[in-house]
Design a protein around this nucleic acid. Structure first.
Lengths: 226, 226
DNA sequence: TCTCTGTAGATTGTAAACAGTTACTCATTG
DNA sequence: CAATGAGTAACTGTTTACAATCTACAGAGA
């Protein structure tokens, strides 16, 4: 048996459509495309040097994630961020993360909390020297741990389907309200301590409080209604 | 301006892939395929008289709904129903239906409750002359109303993604425990009354109770662990 | 018995072509 | 001047065919 450490991890061999999905998602969430922009299959295929097949697969998935809108015989249009989207994403996230936390708090054991503490440690340092992109990354990383340990494939998938939009929201928030960086650490530390009680009810209450707080800040963003 | 009531609703022109998705889902949930059966793209394409394109689109969607498992370079296999699936579907359903009910109870107004009462009336009659398939249909119809009135596109989509599996579970339950038919009406009536209070908290409690009850019955099914 | 190798079968990815639709332009009509 | 309608261009939806890649299985060899 050859240990995992020495095998070449290169031939990842994911489906081409999955790679295209990731690339396009990053381009959209990273602001490389304008909201409302018309993405044409042939253009994308030419640009990414693949055929239309994987492109269509990627666009279908991005539509499920809410990043593009697919209009029949018209093509894909980059979604515009609305107040309704923020509300939907956050209420849905609250619902599933509540479930995830209730399960995770009894499954994380030592390993999970160690991972969390590592992230928290980095958050503390971000609080001093501010890099918005790092803050977004750490925030997501913290919550990824909860979903990873909740041991629930379907919840994990729902999270993955809204994770990209959550990223967009966090970035937008950082751009408008840089003051949040100061509360990043303390709020997550509080949530971690709630989880550490190992009581599902306490974990769920912790999530409710955490998500509501995040939503309240986001609501102050100036967004179109729909 | 012509009112919506008189325009012909026909030319909807759904994409072929969507139609194929519905056909295959019905064939799987209806038991036309054996669990674990290998579904080959070319066979399906020949059988349904369409090309592989729409077939692939459909299989990708059915995988998200948990009806088939896609193994790279191996193809699609009909999912086997496990105890884990039952647990995941029901806990996820509980989480999102809780949210849906909290929103729906203040939005259903008269129209929504009228729809519910119509379904409840039919449930009452089913309780006397028993037809399992009708019971499944009415049960889903009742909950569809909650999701329709919660006015939340993303929750609606998550529901649609597990609705098929819930259907499978309900059918399996009916086959094993025909006695449930007696509680169908009363449990849903109770839930309806909780929603009618117009208080989100009461609605959520009603859902918790309802889903837990449904799950407890399902757990008695004899299923493989994974 | 175990390992290796080869082959057949299946899927994935690519490419090209056609059909169907949509939106747009612009002349025509009232 | 607004509304209508034909005509057109562009794009997507679908089909077909082919090349590349991978998996599983069976059989040869140690």
């Amino acid at each position: 048996m050859i240990p995992d450490d020495v095998v070449s991890p290169l031939p990842s061999q994911r489906a081409l459509g999955d790679l295209v999905t990731d690339v396009l998602r990053e381009m959209i969430t990273g602001g490389r495309f304008q909201p409302g922009q018309h993405l044409k299959e042939t253009e994308l295929a030419d640009a990414l040097k693949v055929s239309r097949g994987p492109i269509r697969q990627a666009l279908a998935r991005l539509e499920e994630e809410g990043h593009v809108e697919l209009r029949r015989h018209r093509g894909a249009f980059v979604s515009t961020l609305t107040r309704t989207d923020v509300e939907e994403v956050h209420t849905l996230r609250g619902a599933i993360e509540r479930l995830a936390a209730g399960r995770a708090c009894t499954r994380m054991q030592g390993a999970g909390f160690a991972e969390m503490d590592e992230v928290l440690e980095q958050m503390k340092s971000v609080d001093t020297k501010i890099d918005p992109e790092d803050a977004v990354r750490l925030d997501l990383q913290f919550h990824d741990i909860i979903y990873a340990y909740c041991d629930h494939g379907r919840v994990q998938r729902v999270w993955e389907s809204i994770r990209g939009q959550v990223t967009v929201f966090l970035r937008a928030r950082n751009a408008s309200f840089p003051d949040f960086l100061e509360v990043g650490y303390s709020e997550h530390k509080e949530l971690r301590d709630a989880l550490a009680l190992g009581d599902p009810q306490a974990a769920q209450d912790g999530i409710d409080k955490h998500i509501v707080g995040a939503y309240e800040r986001l609501k102050r963003l100036n967004l179109p209604d729909r």
